[in-house]
């Protein structure tokens, strides 16, 4: 009984389910980017956006003939995102030393 449910074609998600998942990830990321005040929170939201892009590549690769291109792209995206986080964190630490906060609403020293 249980085995027949797992083996039925309806149990396995199609490309639409995956795309809804990745769009949801991206939207949650953008929402976090717009509402968070802490710079680290913003960075985490941006990671969600980047990962939704990576997920898109893997999904399209799987459902469009399984060439290896999209999966390799996902690996590179992960590496680039890691580099981005390292740089951003270093800058946040430098900022924290001066202002004792990384609240982005207080970043207003440059006014004309």
């Amino acid at each position: 009984m249980l085995a027949s449910i797992f083996n039925s074609p309806y149990f396995y998600p199609s490309i639409y389910h995956w795309l809804v998942l990745s769009s949801a990830l991206f939207s949650i990321g953008i929402y976090g980017f717009l509402t968070r005040k802490n710079a680290v929170g913003i960075l985490i939201s941006l990671e969600l956006c980047l990962n939704s892009g990576a997920l898109n590549f893997v999904v399209f690769d799987y459902f469009r003939g399984n060439h290896i291109d999209g999966k390799i792209m996902a690996l590179f995206i992960i590496a680039v995102a890691a580099a981005e986080v390292v740089i951003a964190m270093a800058i946040f630490v430098g900022m924290f030393k001066h202002k004792k906060t990384i609240d982005v609403t207080e970043m207003n020293q440059m006014r004309n």
Partner: peptide, 26 residues
Amino acid sequence: SEAGLKYVVLGALASALLLLGFSIFY
């Protein structure tokens, strides 16, 4: 530092948008 912070946050957003666009082209 403040300039760097603004640049890195917005730059990461731009690259996320670019990536989503690329994935749709793919």
